[in-house]
Amino acid sequence: MRTLRNILLLVGKDIRLELRTKQGVVSMTVFSILTVLLLAFAFEPGREETEWIGPGLLWIAFSFAGTIGLETTQTSEREEGALEALRMAPVGRGSLYLGKLIANVILLSVVELVTLPLFGILFNFEVLPMLPELLTVQFFGTIGFAAVGTILAAVTSYTKLRGVLLPVVLFPMIVPVLLAAVEATAAAFRGDPMTGALRLLIVYDIVFVTTGVLLFGSVLEE
């Protein structure tokens, strides 16, 4: 019970910080839209191509924007010795991780929810009929992305290059998330069931959230 309250407090802290500065959400959303725009220019998809390349396009935009998001929530910890304060807090390391993870998932979901309708409008693609399916994929995909991303952002923040290395380490690790999420989204676009890909996403989420809880302590001790 106390653990749960601690986690919620930590999530609240990150969300409040974000609501006050809005630096993360704004840059992420703009970047996400820009990615969609650039990919649209690069491929000039018509009605049929959209159904085909749309899922990949969306998830590339989400991953790029997500990388920025992970970077912002991590950078805020480095200011004014916030990280030291967190370390001293009478909270389990696992809770610190879960708090950060949930905050990242919320932040990413907001950006995704803005990008999705925009994608629908720009490409004349009806996203509303398949909204429940799309939201399910997004939910599990985002958890997987953030589960690995939260811990890697903490790791790369110790390097001299800071955020530069995050995508280098993160992208090979999220290959399964990207594959499964794109596959599931494509299935949703076609109106097919998406069980296989979704199951893979859930397995990934379970494995990496557990690993994250176990390993975050070691990252913070440093």
Partner: peptide
């Protein structure tokens, strides 16, 4: 620091391998 953080990456990286491999199914 280098030892601990590399170890974290080493573990996360290896855990990824079977999951990537699972994609073989579909």
């Amino acid at each position: 620091r280098r030892q601990t953080l590399s170890a974290v990456i080493g573990i996360l990286g290896f855990l990824n391998v079977p999951i990537v491999y699972m994609s073989i199914r579909w």
